[in-house]
């Protein structure tokens, strides 16, 4: 299921207009927000919307769990895989 990780990285790049960043630049265990990739709160909203649309999953906007799901590609991967199952 490595494909889903690549798919998620591409979704992040496309959705957030990360012009100068390629799939290989995003590490699976790297933080997506603030440190690491350096995304911010508007990106979180935008990405949440894109994940919701693409994978038809429900995301609770204010929970601690959601924060956890969006912490890295690995976490996002686990979340989407589980939600789709």
């Amino acid at each position: 299921m490595a494909d889903l990780k690549i798919e998620l990285k591409q979704l992040i790049i496309d959705t957030l207009d990360l012009e100068d960043i390629e799939i290989n630049d995003i590490q699976d265990d790297e933080a997506l927000f603030i440190d690491g990739l350096g995304l911010d709160s508007i990106d979180a909203l935008e990405l949440g919307l894109a994940i919701k649309k693409t994978y038809n999953v429900k995301i609770d906007a204010n929970s601690e769990e959601t924060k956890q799901h969006f912490s890295s590609i690995n976490a996002l991967y686990a979340f989407v895989k589980q939600a789709k199952a």
């Binding site: 508007i42 990106d43 919701k52 649309k53």
Partner: peptide, 9 residues
């Protein structure tokens, strides 16, 4: 459709 938060902002 849902609105893009970035575009809206």
């Amino acid at each position: 459709n849902a609105l893009s938060p970035t575009a809206f902002g």
